[in-house]
Design a protein around this nucleic acid. Structure first.
Lengths: 217, 217, 217, 217
DNA sequence: GATGAATGAGAGTTCATTCAT
DNA sequence: TATGAATGAACTCTCATTCAT
C-alpha cells in the first residue's frame, strides 16, 4: 500500500513485512507441531502455535497441502544450499560423502514430518530438484574418478541411500538421534572400492526392543 | 469333535467356519486397501473390499486398531517363520544374509501400510518379537564366526538395516519394486570384512525424478 | 408337532415346555439386565444373561419392544392380582391404602426400567388396565364411605400418586430403597379427611385411561 | 450493553456476539427437541433446529453430554434464582410452599428431558446445588417455626417431593400440564401439622446430596 | 428349534476449509 | 487484513434385527 516504488520482480507478489513474518511463523510452527504431534497434526494446532488465526493461515497457504509443500521447499532449499557449496569445491572427490552426511543432518533436524513431505515431485520444486541431483551426479563422478567409491555405483544408488536414511531418521529420531549415522557408515563402507572400518560407534542395543513411536506411520 | 488331539490353540476361541473365512477375508482386504489407499484408508472400504458389512468387521476386530494389530501379527509371524527356518540350519554362517533378503521380500509383499504397522511393540507380540531378534543375534554371531561379516557389527546394525529397508520399500515399492535389493546389496558390501562386488543390477535412473506416492507419509 | 391332542385354548399358541422355559428366562433376564444396566441395555446382554442365542430371543419376541411389552404385562398382572385380592375383601375401607403400598412394593421390586415400561397403553393390556382402575375406583369409593379419605379425592388423584411413586422409585431405588414409603406416607396424610383443603382443582379423569407418552422412558 | 462495568464472570471466556447467540440458540433448540423427540433425540436434530451446522454445536459443546449439562445448569440456575428470592423475604414461613410451587413451574416449563438432566450432581454444579438445598433447609425451619408444616418433616421429605414432581411432570406434561399441581396440593396437605402422623420413618438426608443414578434417564 | 454371525443404517465426533465480523 | 466461528462431509463405532448353519 504505502510503498509502490522499488517494486520487486513482477509476478512474484510482494508480502508486506508483517505478512511475511506471519508466513515465516507458520512454517516454523508447522515444523514444530508436526515433529511433536506427528504427520496427522491438525491445521488448528499449527495456527495456534504460530499465534495467528485460521484465516491468516489460509490467506498465506490456500491449502494444508500448500503449507506442507512450503515445508518441502524449505527442506529442498536447505539441501540445495549445502550441495551447491559442496559441489563448488570438491577437488579430492570427497564431496559425495560430505553430501550424504549433510542430507542426514538436514533431515534429522526436521524429523517428524519427513514422511508427509517427500511426496511425488510437486510442480514448483521440479527445477531445484533437478539441479540438486545434477549436482550429486557430478559429485558421484568426481568421487569415482578419485577412486573414493566403486565404479559401478549409480546416481540411483545414492538416491536410495538418502531415501533409506529418511525412513530410518523418522523411525529412530526421538529414541536414537544418531542411529542414522551408523547406518550411513555401513552404506559408505559398501560404497567403497574396498572394505574399510566403520566411522561411527555402535548404537545401544536397547533400541531393538523399543520399536518406533506410535504416530510414525 | 471327533478328534481332540490336534485342536486349536487353547485360549484362542474357535470360530465357525464362515466366521473364520470372513476374518481371513478382512485381513486380506485390509492389506490390499491399505496398499492402494494408504495408511489412512477407512474401515468402510476394507469391509466393502472384503464383501462383508461393517458390523462383521467390528465383530471380528473390536477396533480399527485391532485390525491393524492383526496385520502386524501376521507380518511378524511370517518373519518369524522364515527366521526360524533359516536359523535351524546355518552351518556356513550365511544365514544372516539370507535373513535380510527374506525380511525385504516379506515387507515388500506387504508394502503400503508397513508404516502403520511397525509401531512400538504391541503387548501381544512382545515374546515373538524377542524370539525373532534372539534368532537374529545367533545368526549374527555365526556369520561373524564364519568370517562372513565384520567383527564390529552389532545386532542393532542389523536392525537398522531392516528399518532402512522398510522405509525404502514403502517409498519405492510401486515404482521400482526391486530397488530395495540394490540398497541391501550395498549394505551387505558394507557388512563384509572386505569390499566385494554388488549382487544386483542398478535401478533405472528415472526413479530419481519420480519421487514417492502422495500418501506415503 | 408331536402332540396334537388335548390342545389348549384355541388362538393362544402353545409353547413346548422348553420354549416356555426360554420365554420365562428371557423375561427374567430382561428385568435383571434393565435393572443393572439401565433402560438402554442392549438385547445381546439380555440374551446372554438368559443363556440363549439371539435367534431364540427373536423367535420368542418379534421385537425388543415386544419383550419390553411382556415385562409391562407381567407388571400389570402382578398389580392386578394384588388389587383383585384387596378389592375382594375390603369391609373397612382400608383397601385403597393397601393398594398404594402394594403398588409401591411391586414397582420397587422391578425398578430399573419402569420408565421404559409405563408407556401409553399398549393394545393388549387395555382390558386389564381398565379392570385395574375400575377396581381402584371401587376401593376409593369404599374408602370415602368409610371416612378414610377426603371426599374431594378423585380417581385421578390416586393415579397421580402412583405415577409420582413410579418416578420416585426409579430415582431413588438404588440409593434409598424405602424413600418412596416416606413420600407415600406424606401423600396418605394428605388424603386424610382431616387435612387441610386441597389448593388445586381436580384433574380430568381421562388421564387415567391415557397412560404416559411413548418416549417417556 | 453499552456499559462495560458489569463484564462477564471472570474465568468464563467471552464469546463473540454471534457465537453467544448460537450458544443460546443451541440450548433453546435442545430443550425443544428433547421435549418433542424424547431424551434420545440426536445431536443432528438439535443442530438443525438451532439452524447451525454440526461443527458449531461441537465447537460450543465438546460433547453431547456437555450440552445436556448446560441444560442442567440452566435449570439449576433458574431454580436457584427463584429460591434465593423466596428465601430473602420469608417472614411468615410460607416460603417453603412457594418454593415447591416454583420448582414445579420451572420443571414444567422444561419438561421433556428432565430425566436426562437430573443425574448425580456433575462437579460443576456441586456448589450451587449445595446452596439451593441449604436455602431450602432454612425455608423448612422457618416454616416449622411458623407452624406451617409439621415438626417431623425433614429436608429429604422436601427433596422427595420435588423428585416426585419431576417424574410426574415428565409423565403428564403433554396431556395434563397442571396435573402436578394437584399432586402437590395433596403433598402440601400431608405436610400440614394437623394431618395424620406419617407412617414411615424419615429417610437419611444424605440422599439430598447424592442425586440420582446416571443412567436414570 | 436354536444358535450366533452378519447386516447396515445411524449414532456421536473431527477437521480441512470458508466466511461473517 | 486478521480473526476465529461456522460448515458439513467423512470418520469410527453401535445395535436392533435377519439369516445361514
Amino acid at each position: 500500500m504505502t510503498e509502490s516504488s522499488a517494486g520487486p520482480a513482477p509476478g512474484a507478489r510482494v508480502l508486506r513485512r508483517d505478512a511475511a513474518e506471519n508466513r515465516e511463523r507458520l512454517v516454523h510452527a508447522a515444523w514444530e507441531v508436526f515433529a511433536e504431534l506427528g504427520p496427522d497434526a491438525g491445521v488448528e494446532d499449527i495456527a495456534r502455535r504460530a499465534g495467528v488465526g485460521m484465516g491468516t493461515l489460509y490467506r498465506r497457504f490456500p491449502t494444508k497441502e500448500a503449507l506442507v509443500l512450503a515445508l518441502h521447499e524449505g527442506l529442498l532449499d536447505e539441501m540445495l544450499a549445502h550441495t551447491r557449496e559442496t559441489a563448488a569445491d570438491d577437488p579430492m572427490g570427497r564431496g559425495l560423502e560430505e553430501f550424504l552426511w549433510d542430507m542426514g543432518a538436514v533431515m534429522s533436524s526436521h524429523h517428524g514430518c519427513l514422511s508427509r513431505l517427500w511426496r511425488s515431485a510437486p510442480p514448483a520444486t521440479g527445477e531445484r530438484r533437478k539441479e540438486l541431483w545434477d549436482l550429486v551426479g557430478r559429485l558421484l563422478r568426481q568421487a569415482q574418478r578419485a577412486g573414493e567409491v566403486r565404479d559401478d555405483l549409480t546416481l540411483t544408488d545414492v538416491y536410495l541411500c538418502v531415501l533409506s536414511l529418511r525412513g530410518l531418521i523418522e523411525d529412530t529420531a526421538t529414541q536414537a538421534p544418531n542411529a542414522w549415522r551408523r547406518h550411513l557408515s555401513v552404506a559408505l563402507a559398501g560404497f567403497a572400492p574396498a572394505s574399510r572400518p566403520l566411522d561411527h560407534r555402535p548404537v545401544d542395543d536397547s533400541l531393538v526392543e523399543a520399536g518406533v513411536p506410535a504416530w510414525n506411520r
